[in-house]
Nucleic acid binder design. Structure first.
Lengths: 229, 229
DNA sequence: CCAAAAGTGTTTCACGTACACCCATGC
DNA sequence: GCATGGGTGTACGTGAAACACTTTTGG
């Protein structure tokens, strides 16, 4: 390892898998490429890492620039370094995944950004580069992590019903859950704040609203509490 | 994103956290740096990624070159991209962690390699760069992963006693386990092959040897089996 | 009054946990 | 024969899973 490294260098990018949830599906935000290679193909938002920013900063900047998303849950996923990922030259990409409240962000993504569209996970178009593989990895991570970390709340509005919460897990995990057992368990955890408020504009009995109590969760973790669905 | 990316580029390296286990401790393999910066400080084995090799290949190559380790369990850990990690210039490092059977590799590491030494996890020297942070992250990953994936066996010789296995978990997790419950559980899984063989050269009753049945484990996973300690 | 979803308890079974003594072997 | 670790079973409690009906509300 010499003092100055003289050899040719790989380019480094960040790519973001942005998950959102609506009533029916888990969705991913993709942008349409307007330059070759893979012109007009769909791809994950992302771009080159600058020398003066960290990887996390690069991911947030790209997300903001390409999809106008800000202040979302964002976590590093995996780094993909296959030699021929990009046909032009060697590009190593540090992949991130993000979770957003679709209800808040739906409009913005469609207007501000060039051509950013939400796709249902089970109805994806062909993707550029190895982005299908990155997406697959992100999906697995989400499925794994949602079960033992309270990150699912990042996909819901701040106030939500227990049925919404249950449906979230059913959609992400891909299996149905028992209503009574789910409620017993999640309410028993003591990390949900029961509000004096019910949902509106529904054509049936309105459900009570809850809020995730992040501070209480933090306290409980320190006492050895372990979240698990 | 222009076709040709002209800006200055960060260098990309791989660093490996190599864990090994002896009767007493969890150990890490460190090498002494012989060049500035951090000359004579201890550091994780690692080096620059070449254009013609993947990240995994780079990690294995560096491991081989610097510690003469081959064919070990190796998995990507996390990518560290802090701006001032390296005082010379911007260096992004893709960290890996490896698990090795100390009994097999003890000698080699000490002879072939320049100055590679095993340190107990609770008696570490000051490390170069941000390697203490990388090591900390690796340790957390190991503690988390060892509980729900059968990677612990990578730290033991192919044939081992149940007491050795239990001690492994006690050392890695940092807490004592109940002997009868541990045996009941691990034997009940049906992934251990009971051998017609006992340990040798012990000054007491010799314990039966077992082997991890990887194929059977693979089959069971397909049936929905979930390993957990 | 009908449709639609909200809300609610009990029983059963599996599994985690706590716990102590005799056995085999080498020296 | 003694020191050292090997090996074994049971009782108890907690938590997961299965399961169906009544209530509320809007239209």
């Amino acid at each position: 390892m010499s003092f100055m490294y003289q050899f040719a260098r790989a380019a480094v990018t960040v790519d973001c898998v942005v998950f959102g949830l609506d009533d029916e599906d888990l969705k991913v935000l993709l942008i349409r490429r307007d330059l070759p290679p893979f012109e007009d193909k769909w791809a994950l938002p992302g771009g080159f890492v600058r020398l003066e920013e960290t990887l996390d900063e690069a991911a947030r900047r790209e997300l903001q620039e390409e999809t106008s998303l800000e202040r979302v849950f964002l976590e590093q996923l995996y780094t993909f370094g296959g030699i021929d990922r990009d046909p032009r030259e060697r590009v190593i990409t540090v992949a991130y995944y993000a979770l957003v409240r679709l209800s808040d962000h739906r409009v913005q993504a469609a207007t501000d950004a060039r051509d950013a569209v939400w796709f249902a996970m089970d109805d994806l178009p062909p993707l550029a580069f190895d982005h299908d593989q990155i997406l697959e990895t992100a999906h697995q991570r989400l499925q794994g992590k949602v079960r033992y970390q309270p990150i699912g709340f990042e996909l819901l509005p701040p106030k939500f019903t227990l049925t919404q919460l249950q449906k979230l897990y059913e959609i992400v995990l891909g299996r149905v859950l028992d209503k009574r057992n789910f409620r017993k368990k999640i309410q028993g955890m003591g990390i949900l704040e029961e509000l004096d408020e019910v949902e509106k504009d529904v054509a049936h009995r309105a459900a009570r609203l809850y809020r995730f109590n992040k501070k209480e969760y933090g306290r409980m973790v320190k006492q050895g509490f372990h979240f698990e669905i």
